[in-house]
Design a protein around this nucleic acid. Structure first.
Lengths: 132, 132
DNA sequence: CGGCATCCAAATAGATACTG
DNA sequence: CAGTATCTATTTGGATGCCG
């Protein structure tokens, strides 16, 4: 392979790489961080109330959940519905757009499960780490 | 649908939900954060040297890259290879296990690209945000 | 119940300088 | 080149109390 050909390849590769990096970075801007996907998963299973979601997504504080829900609403993934009445009831609902995340959630779930399997069967080596 | 049936459904749903949440949380432990996937993407395109990777993953500092590479090595995704010689050359390489991430990376790339498209075609609303 | 305000502690990251 | 050390600045997050 000539040097020129190599450079061409590298250039195309770099451009494709930058496109992928940009896309992943865009995605992480919206669904990155510790909680956003977990909130969406919990909501996809029917949790709509603030306290329900907080109970299922273990470890999240009210302050953080509140702020995450706002982000998700701003980014078009959920809506906050306020039903006036006595008492006022507030529910969060997934918007149809959130379903576009199914593939991402599916891939991460699958990977997380197989990774735990892998770690479990590697109990000899203790330097690998897994959540709690 | 009876109340009992409903409760059963909810219980099964809750358990399945917790399994998914745990898996996603495991995955995020290893590949979460702003940089890890981007480093892997860059390396999958052939970048092996510290400085090459830092150049392609724009915005990452040497200190953070150094620490991220260590995490990735601990978790079995990459190796650091030191070729003694003059001068000593250091290269990082993806391990075969890193290929198990292809589906995750693919899903996120796809989603990020379509999301940018969506935002672009929604230029009327200015409250949605996208990276730089 | 569903938050927001405040305070404070901890984690994270940038800048800079330095080393083998 | 491939980092490490140090210091500081910023971000993040927990705890608590209050409010409609």
């Amino acid at each position: 392979m000539s040097k020129a050909k190599n450079n061409q390849d590298n250039k195309a590769f770099t451009e494709e790489c930058n496109a992928v990096l940009k896309a992943v970075s865009d995605a992480q801007y919206v669904i990155g961080g510790k909680w956003k996907l977990m909130i969406i998963i919990s909501m996809a299973r029917g949790n709509k109330r603030f306290t329900e979601i907080q109970k299922q997504v273990s470890g999240i504080s009210a302050r953080v959940l509140s702020s995450e829900l706002k982000d998700l609403e701003i980014n078009g993934l959920i809506v906050k519905k306020v039903e006036t009445g006595y008492p006022v009831s507030i529910e969060y609902e997934l918007l149809p757009y959130s379903h576009t995340l199914e593939e991402v959630v599916g891939a991460m779930t699958k990977w997380g499960m197989q990774h735990r399997q892998k770690i479990m069967s590697e109990r000899k080596s203790s330097s690998n780490k897994i959540n709690k």
